[in-house]
Computed example of a mutant assay.
Amino acid sequence: MDKLWEAAGTKLADRWAAVSGPALVFWIGGLLAYAHDRHGVRPLTDWLARQKSPVQLLAVALALVVVAASALAVQQFVTPTLRLLEGYWPRWLGFLRKRLIARLHAKDKADKAEWQQLEPLVTPPGATPDAETLRRYAEIDRRRQLRPFKSAALMPTRVGNVLHAAESRPGAKYGLDAVTVWPRLWLLLPETTRKELEAARRALDRGVATSLWGLLFLVFSPWSLWAVPIGLATAAGAVLLITPSRAEVYGQLVEAAFDVHRTVLYEHLRWPLPEHPRDELAQGAKLTSYLSGGSDAVHPRFVPPPPVEPR
C-alpha cells in the first residue's frame, strides 16, 4: 500500500505540475508583491508555524487547490483569447479591423509585385542573383508564405494571417478545404504526426495563456507598482513574439500533414487518386464537396478496397 500511495502521489504531483506551472509562477509573484507591501511574509509564516499539523496540511492543500483551480480557469479563456488574437473582433472594432486589413492588403500587393520582379532573377536554372537579391527574395517569399493565399482572406493580425495561411494553402494546392477535410484526415494521421501536432498546439495555447497571466498580474499593482511593468511586458511579449512564432510552427505542421498524408484520405474513402498534379485541384474540390454534403452522382467510381492478406 505504501508503494501504491507513493506511485499515486507521484503521478498526481506530475499532473499538477503540468497543469499548474504558470499559475504557480503567477501566485509566487503575487506573494512577492504582498511581501513588498507588507515588508515581508514573516507574519504569515509565523501564523502558519503556530498551527497544528492538520491545519498546516489543510493550508498547503488549499493553496495547491487554488493554484490548480486558477490554472483551469485561465485555460477556459485560451480559445476565446486566441480568436481575438486572430482578429475576430466585436462589431464596434470593425473600423479598426478594416483599416488594418487595408494596410496589410497594400503591403501584400506590393510584396507580390516585387516578388514577380525578383522571381525570374532567382529561380530559373543558371540564374546568378547577387546576395542582396537573394536576401530580398527570401524575405518577401517568407512573408507571402505567412499570409492567406487569397488577399480577400487577410486578417488584421499576424497570428490570424499565419493560421489562415495554413488553412487556405491545402485548398490552393490540392483543392482540399482544410475546415472540411481536417477532422477526417486527423483520424488517419500516424501517431507520431499527431503527437507533433498536439505538442505544437499545446505550445500555442501556452503562449496565449501567458498573455492572460500577464494581464492578470496587474491585480497585484495595489501592493507593488512593479507588477504593472512586469505584467504588461509579459502580456506584450506573449502577444507580439511568443504566440505568433508558435502559430507559425503549428501552421507549418498542419500544412505539412496535408502535403504528406492527404493520399491516405483518398485511399480510405475509396476515392480515385489524381493521376497528375494538374488534376489534383479538381479532384480535391470534388472530394471536399462529397465530404461536405454527400453526392448522388455516378462519377467518380469508388476504387475497390485492397485485398486483405491472409494471416
Rank of each mutant, 00 (worst) to 15 (best):
G21K: 04
G21M: 04
G21R: 03
P22F: 05
P22H: 00
A23I: 02
A23Q: 04
A23M: 05
L24Q: 14
V25F: 11
V25Q: 08
V25S: 15
F26Q: 00
W27F: 04
I28Y: 12
I28N: 14
G29H: 03
G29E: 04
G30H: 08
G30A: 05
L31Q: 03
L32I: 09
L32M: 15
L32Q: 11
L32Y: 08
L32K: 08
A33P: 01
A33M: 02
A33C: 08
Y34P: 07
A35G: 12
H36E: 09
H36N: 15
H36G: 11
H36T: 08
D37I: 00
R38A: 00
H39N: 03
H39M: 05
G40V: 07
V41G: 13
V41H: 09
R42Y: 15
R42K: 12
P43H: 11
P43I: 05
P43N: 06
L44A: 06
L44M: 09
L44Y: 07
L44E: 07
T45F: 14
D46K: 10
D46R: 13
W47R: 13
A49S: 12
A49T: 10
R50C: 01
Q51S: 14
K52I: 11
K52G: 15
K52T: 12
K52V: 12
S53K: 03
S53P: 05
P54Q: 03
V55G: 03
L57R: 15
L57F: 14
L58T: 14
L58H: 09
V60M: 09
A61L: 10
A61Y: 05
L62Q: 04
L62H: 08
A63G: 15
A63P: 05
L64Y: 03
V66C: 09
V67L: 10
V67E: 09
V67D: 08
V67C: 14
A69L: 12
A69S: 14
S70A: 03
S70R: 04
A71I: 02
A71L: 02
A71T: 01
L72F: 15
L72Y: 15
A73V: 11
Q75I: 00
Q75W: 07
Q76M: 03
F77T: 11
F77M: 08
V78D: 07
T79A: 13
T79Y: 10
T79S: 10
P80W: 01
L82N: 15
R83P: 08
R83L: 05
R83Y: 06
L84T: 12
L85N: 07
L85F: 05
L85E: 09
L85W: 09
L85C: 04
E86V: 07
E86D: 06
E86L: 10
E86H: 07
G87H: 01
Y88E: 14
Y88K: 14
Y88W: 15
W89C: 12
W89T: 13
P90N: 00
R91Q: 10
R91E: 10
W92M: 08
W92L: 13
L93C: 12
L93D: 06
G94K: 13
L96V: 04
L96T: 04
L96A: 11
R97I: 02
R97A: 00
R97S: 08
K98D: 11
K98N: 13
R99E: 01
